[in-house]
Write a protein that binds this DNA or RNA. Structure first.
Lengths: 196, 196
DNA sequence: ATTTCTGATCCAGGATTATGTATCGTGTCT
DNA sequence: AGACACGATACATAATCCTGGATCAGAAAT
């Protein structure tokens, strides 16, 4: 009941899903049971600190202690510094959809080897993920992913994949163009200057 | 036994001591028992995640999840951004001595109201704390604090306090001058670029 | 010298976590 | 349709946390 850690556990789950790791796979890496992880992630159980550390370490995450006032600054610092291979909590409502999509792409790369088109799709998804998309745009993404999903096994997949990549790229460009998006700092540090 | 969190709990303890909060005081704020906190801090017990969160929140700290690779960068970012009122894990061996000193000053301010000199002392201590001091310099600090301690109740305290403030300031200046201390970045981000 | 405060330690109990194993429903793959 | 992997759930057992005291040695304050 008391729950405290909801935000942290939710974050861990997002990262796990975004990296395409199943609860069972994670349970092996972290030395916990799958049922345990499920309960933690769904908030039915409050983990011990060490369990949670095991879990997050297995996801290439570290638990850090930060002065409360600096949290927003650190948050955007992390987002700014993050390279594409790191999975960072995005907090976007569409996250789950993208998690599925990215998982699919990852699987395709694993099965058929990575192609330039797949790489492009992956990167574009990564970009779109942290942007506010309209319902229409989101729908477009869903359709494209569905198509990718459908034709993944086909022999003639290559041109289709390329087409999907192009469509996503186009969406990305239009979004990037629409938002003037000065690289706004997203955080400010001037609140209580108290230095003699 | 497994201990995992040693670094985190140690950090929490340092911050608690640096802020001059006793285990009992903290136990009330955090809603835990003193014996519990003692065991956690001394590593005799692995806390639950929620207990640890309660504890650190009561110290104005937040627990954050950060990609492993970014930890060093975030660490120095935090140190760079920290204002004097925040207590950040310093890792200096002299921490305990300074903790005592800062506690004393805090108490004086509480008892007699804050004066410009006390403020100056406080700030200077804060600076000296995170610097490598020689044994001699450390001894000087100790002596000054002892003097402050001795004369705190005296009627004629004011001029003495002022003298102590000046001495500390002088030490600070000499230290700051001695160390050329280029603002070295202290972290680098180029280790494994893997972007198509 | 004595009172006060600190952190460490002990102990009994009730509460919660964590394991191990197994199952269930759903969605996917062949 | 059947096989398979996913996450959610169930349940009995062991392990551990956490509380609620109480006590203790040592440092600090009066």
């Amino acid at each position: 009941m008391s729950y405290q850690s909801e935000s942290l556990t939710a974050q861990a789950r997002e990262v796990r899903e975004a990296s395409g790791v199943s609860q069972r796979a994670l349970s092996e890496r972290a030395g916990l049971t799958q049922s345990h992880i499920s309960q933690i992630e769904s908030g039915k159980m409050e983990p011990g600190l060490s369990s949670f550390i095991d879990m997050t370490r297995a996801l290439d995450l570290e638990l850090m202690l930060v002065p409360k006032k600096l949290v927003p600054a650190v948050l955007s610092f992390v987002r700014a510094q993050a390279t594409p291979d790191m999975h960072v909590h995005a907090g976007q409502p569409n996250d789950k959809r993208f998690a599925r999509a990215e998982r699919l792409v990852k699987k395709l790369k694993h099965l058929y080897g990575s192609s330039a088109d797949l790489d492009r799709i992956e990167e574009t998804l990564r970009f779109l993920r942290r942007v506010d998309l309209s319902d229409q745009e989101m729908q477009l993404v869903r359709d494209l992913i569905a198509r990718l999903d459908r034709y993944q096994a086909s022999e003639q997949a290559a041109p289709i994949v390329r087409d999907i990549a192009q469509n996503l790229q186009r969406l990305r460009n239009s979004v990037a163009h629409a938002a003037p998006s000065g690289p706004r700092p997203a955080y400010s540090l001037d609140d209580g200057g108290d230095n003699a």
